[in-house]
Design a protein around this nucleic acid. Structure first.
Length: 384
DNA sequence: GGCACCGGGCTCTGCCATAGGT
DNA sequence: ACCTATGGCAGAGCCCGGTGCC
């Protein structure tokens, strides 16, 4: 009886290999009758294929591949119970694209469902990704970083439509590439989801009295590659909160959003809200007026990106170093640099007796190279 | 040559919840 | 009952250099 079962399994396997690997979505359908077949004969001595038992030979294969089975089990337990999987094919495929054994193991450990994809499906998907990325190596590095982005969906038609849509936005090739390299999840968003965000941004533009909605959406996306992996709810809430808290006019908001304000749109709602409250409070306590704070945020929205603790230490560092609030308001970009960096510069400048009052604090806002050159010059010819 | 202004470059996954299918 | 596909969430800055003006 057991051998009869195995015969059926191999028949199924043939059928499966022949038909299913053309389109991954059929796989589960193909597997299903087998499951039912098992249920019909539950007393048979076939633990491998029973519904709630893991597939032993699959586990063996995974171990051989170096997969962290414990991790895989924790992430997608169902995959380990599947009768038909394609772990060896997937491993070979990835290796043929230049992935190391270690990378393959890591990918499967983190996204076990990868092994349910067929070769044809993978090859097609790979080619679609390669439309955007220059080399296999680049794709491998992204998969290594984020296996889920590549494997979470097997629907290549949707991916194709999605890519066509993204291209239709007329982002530059460079931007499209940056977009997908930075946030590969955008690939596996549904077309509708991406469209929703773009149309939402266009709407925002129109509601704020803008006249170039497409350009507006494009500007925001190219400045903040991550908006497309956020919910419209999140972005909308941030925009609303920003306008309310800062008492910005529509026109002011419009300029802010398509400028450097774009960068803070994808922050979590609570985080941005807390930071806005914190910035207002901190700067008011330090003697600024509301108008100062508004100007600060409009000219340097990234101040809202900085968490309360970091901002506190950074301000303290500057103030203790003899910099005044007025100077900071006049050149908020000094807040851009790490506290560590600023502290070291302040120390160095104090040692050579730099006069911030006379010379301003622009020196704190230079690249390392320019700063070093400047110091060099101050030391060798201090008179100038 | 030195400065200020400005914009751009890096960077971002891994988990949970749930609808819907079999 | 179980699985897949998909949406959504939290997490939390730093650095560089081109360019134009003086």
């Amino acid at each position: 009886m057991a051998s009869a079962f195995r015969a059926i399994v191999s028949l199924h396997r043939l059928f499966f290999l022949h038909k299913t690997f053309k389109c991954a979505t059929v796989q589960s359908a193909t597997v299903f009758p087998l499951r039912r077949l098992n249920n019909v004969a539950p007393n048979e001595n076939e633990p491998k294929a029973s519904v709630n038992t893991e597939n032993e030979s699959l586990l063996e294969n995974l171990n051989l591949l170096g997969v962290d089975v414990k991790m895989a089990r924790q992430r997608q337990p169902g995959v380990l119970r599947r009768v038909f999987t394609n772990e060896q094919g997937v491993a070979k495929f990835l290796q043929s694209k230049g992935a190391s054994q270690h990378t393959v193991a890591s990918i499967i450990s983190r996204y076990p469902r990868a092994i349910t994809r067929s070769l044809e499906n993978l090859e097609h998907r790979w080619q679609l990704w390669r439309n955007v990325f220059e080399t296999d190596e680049e794709v491998v590095s992204i998969l290594d970083r984020s296996p889920e982005s590549f494997f979470r969906s097997s629907d290549n038609c949707k991916l194709e439509k999605n890519l066509a849509y993204l291209s239709s936005l007329r982002l530059s090739n460079k931007d499209l590439h940056r977009l997908l390299a930075a946030a590969p999840r955008i690939f596996s968003n549904s077309l509708e989801l991406n469209k929703q965000m773009v149309e939402f941004l266009e709407d925002v533009c129109i509601k704020l009295g803008g006249t170039a909605p497409k350009e507006f959406a494009k500007a925001i996306i190219s400045k903040n590659l991550y908006v497309l992996i956020r919910s419209t709810k999140r972005v909308k809430t941030n925009i609303d909160n920003l306008q309310a808290a800062m008492k910005l006019s529509d026109a002011e908001l419009l300029v802010l959003l398509q400028g450097s304000g774009a960068k803070i749109l994808d922050l979590s709602n609570e985080y941005l809200k807390n930071n806005m409250a914190n910035v207002q409070e901190r700067f008011l306590v330090l003697g600024c007026c509301e108008e100062d704070v508004k100007k600060l945020i409009v000219s340097y929205p990234m101040v809202l990106y900085i968490g309360a603790t970091t901002l506190s230490t950074k301000l303290d560092c500057l103030l203790n170093g003899g910099i005044t609030m007025k100077q900071i308001l006049g050149k908020p970009k000094v807040l851009d640099y790490s506290t560590q960096n600023v502290a070291a510069r302040l120390q160095e400048l104090h040692e050579i007796g730099y006069n911030f009052e006379a010379n301003g604090i622009g020196i704190l806002d230079l690249s390392q190279k320019r700063f070093a050159a400047k110091i060099e010059k101050l030391v060798t010819s201090p008179d100038e």
